[in-house]
Design a protein around this nucleic acid. Structure first.
Lengths: 266, 266
DNA sequence: CGGGGATTTGACACATATCAAGAGCGGTGG
DNA sequence: CCACCGCTCTTGATATGTGTCAAATCCCCG
């Protein structure tokens, strides 16, 4: 039994008034009652409670049925699973991906702390992609049925939820622009700048960070092969735009990176 | 004054109880009060009212502030415009696109009757892409502020709206899969099958239809150049999968088209 | 400390882009 | 109603960006 699991057991507390039913554990991921609610969570400026008043945040906490620990490489949910809840990343890093029959995998997103996963499942009432942890992670389980009810009574929550969905749509538009009209180096530059920005928004360094995904996963997300990603990294390093050593990346010249996007050839 | 405009004026009726403010006309597009409400609209099985009871549909009609006529090539909204409403396509065909500084355009979607546009504007409270009519078209103006209020009181509407947003996210995942991991011919096959299906859902022929967009626009959507699109059309025709004559397309072998997707090379 | 996956780099292949020319069609105006 | 013009589409020849295959090195994880 590893230390994470021990910690998770120690953390079990009756926090939610009346959990309606059990959430099935998948793989070795573990389900725990939440001990720290949204009000104490340091992500409340980024996550669902963003913009809500203290009283409202207390109510929003009731949404969180439990928290799930997911170890590196394991699934939070899989394509085809029944849809019951959304997930907010509490800690760690996830990827979501779609598969083609022949095994080709397209990564559709990387999620970091405070971001919401699973919204594509609402329509079909079934998850349509796989969510896998890129490192040992935790996700808050947001029961969708409760979210529906609660957001009818809390306009602020309703608004925030709609904005979260809307931003997911807008984000994907950006990815479509990237995949449909940018060249390999532009794609990687856009990707690095995006990561940098998101780390900075979480008060981590936006200038120096560790990639949680492999070159192959970056390639899958960007519609490139891993060798092409690797070559682009090397080229950026030669040009003094970044420093790379395996997964450790330093952004040396963010302006230079921005300049390479959106100007066609050269 | 053309016949469409005359018709639009003839159509003006006080249908909505208290329009709060004028919707500014853009270009030569025209705003009219709606005469036929959602209950009579033949799209109610596809559009927002889908799944609602008759009573509920009556209430949903209050969402529709007006209808806008947009002529071919003109904008329904532009990137940067303040966001006030969503739009449901009443008739015709629209494209939405994102621009890069250097003028590259990525078409992010084609919308046909019953589909909802503009959801990416909710988060930023500003439209983030351009919506242009591909033929003379009409769109129902859904005031977002009313949608928020009404969906708090009509659970069915809330549910339907969330599903519409969710499906938009899922659709974009599909496009990302297409752009990120399919080859030119697979992309076109997927595109044609998708169009065919959507026409069929609207009781038009899914076997024979007229493309509303140019080869260049198809290419922009699929991340290809127009010549590549044209060549793929010709190849499909040679292989007996489809018939093409300019914008008129016949699907001769849907199974064959499906077979070419998702099997890697060849 | 050992082993296997991840990364880098090179050489070459191939899919798609680019450039170019001509044909077809549709809308407009005489 | 016909003829013209311009835009769209098709097709060919060539260029190029990225994929593919291969091998060596590096590290991280167990």
């Amino acid at each position: 039994m590893d230390k994470d699991l021990k910690a998770s057991i120690a953390e079990v507390q009756v926090f939610v008034a009346s959990p309606r039913r059990a959430v099935p554990a998948r793989g070795s991921s573990e389900v725990t009652r939440v001990s720290t609610g949204c009000a104490n969570c340091n992500l409340h400026e980024i996550c669902i409670p963003c913009g809500l008043t203290g009283r409202e945040v207390d109510q929003v906490e009731e949404l969180i049925y439990a928290r799930r620990r997911v170890k590196r490489g394991e699934s939070l949910y899989r394509a085809g699973d029944a849809f019951n809840s959304l997930y907010a990343v509490r800690s760690g890093f996830f990827k979501t991906s779609q598969m083609l029959e022949d095994g080709r995998e397209q990564i559709t997103a990387f999620y970091m702390a405070g971001e919401i996963m699973g919204m594509d499942g609402i329509g079909p009432e079934r998850h349509s992609c796989n969510a896998v942890a890129l490192e040992d992670s935790q996700a808050c389980v947001i029961l969708y049925s409760r979210l529906e009810v609660l957001s009818r009574n809390l306009p602020g929550l309703q608004q925030q939820f709609h904005k979260v969905m809307s931003r997911e749509i807008a984000r994907e538009h950006g990815v479509m622009l990237l995949l449909g009209s940018m060249r390999a180096e532009e794609r990687l530059a856009a990707f690095l700048l995006n990561l940098s920005q998101r780390f900075a928004a979480r008060r981590y360094s936006g200038h120096e960070f560790v990639l949680r995904m492999t070159r192959e996963e970056i390639g899958s997300y960007l519609g490139l092969k891993l060798e092409t990603v690797s070559r682009a990294f090397s080229k950026f390093q030669e040009e003094g735009l970044i420093s790379v050593r395996h997964k450790r990346v330093g952004i040396l010249d963010a302006t230079g990176l921005k300049r390479m996007i959106g100007r066609g050839l050269h």
